[in-house]
């Protein structure tokens, strides 16, 4: 598969990135190369292969439902780029 600039524009919105024109050109070129290389996998017969999402199979890992102390609000908000005494602040969320 080969990647078009238009696809890159679409993906950049999905990824919440904003690429300038020259960045878009470079990105299209570089990712197209990489993606073409990845097409190598098409030749592998994976008919009977179970997808492997974890490096080591583990199941049923649980924690008990006992409350532990939360962060105090000051620590929780201490890294916020914009905040008030109680909350994080962001440009208005539209709709909804």
């Amino acid at each position: 598969m080969s990647l078009t600039r238009q696809q890159i524009v679409k993906v950049s919105l999905l990824a919440r990135l904003r690429l300038q024109d020259d960045e878009l050109d470079r990105m299209t070129h570089q990712l197209d190369q990489v993606v073409s290389y990845m097409d190598l996998l098409a030749e592998v017969d994976t008919e009977d292969a179970e997808p492997m999402a974890h490096a080591v199979e583990q199941t049923n890992v649980f924690a008990e439902d006992h409350v532990l102390p939360s962060l105090d609000r000051e620590s929780a908000l201490s890294n916020a780029p914009k905040r008030d005494e109680q909350c994080y602040r962001v440009p208005a969320v539209l709709g909804d």
Partner: peptide, 30 residues
Amino acid sequence: VKRRIMLGTYALSHGYYDAYYVKALKVRRL
């Protein structure tokens, strides 16, 4: 970092998920 985010977003996006991500998970098993 941006390149990898773009690549990963693309590979998980609608229509490419099986061809890239799931395929890779299967080859990983092999």
